[in-house]
């Protein structure tokens, strides 16, 4: 169980559109040093004027491309990058 004084960084994998109730919960759960990866329906949040995403939010390239969400300032990752992220984090939440 993680020690509270040294909480491990969490990878948050989010696949819900911004209007899904879990989207806001996920954003609220972001802690310093955590990583947010948007996949599937969640990538449209990159275009959502009403949503402010944490700095350095990642999005899965294939899902962004499928939905015509062009490259923005955010970091796009391919599937290998997705796997690498899961390896770099000891804690993962699939929202």
């Amino acid at each position: 169980m993680p020690d509270s004084t040294d909480t491990p960084k969490t990878l948050h994998i989010l696949n819900k559109a911004p209007d899904h109730s879990r989207f806001a919960l996920c954003l609220a759960a972001q802690a310093d040093g955590d990583t947010l990866l948007l996949i599937e329906d969640a990538v449209i949040a990159l275009l959502d004027q009403q949503i402010s995403l944490p700095m350095g939010t990642h999005a899965l390239q294939a899902d962004a491309q499928a939905r015509g969400v062009g490259s923005t300032a955010e970091k796009h990752v391919d599937y290998a990058g997705f796997v690498a992220l899961t390896e770099e984090h000891t804690r993962i939440i699939n929202w």
Binding site: M1, P2, T7, A29, R91, I92, I93, N94, W95
Partner: peptide, 13 residues
């Protein structure tokens, strides 16, 4: 619930 999420290595909704 938020505190509970923190007690696990893997959380899957």
């Amino acid at each position: 619930s938020q505190a509970t999420l923190k007690q696990f290595d893997r959380v899957v909704f």
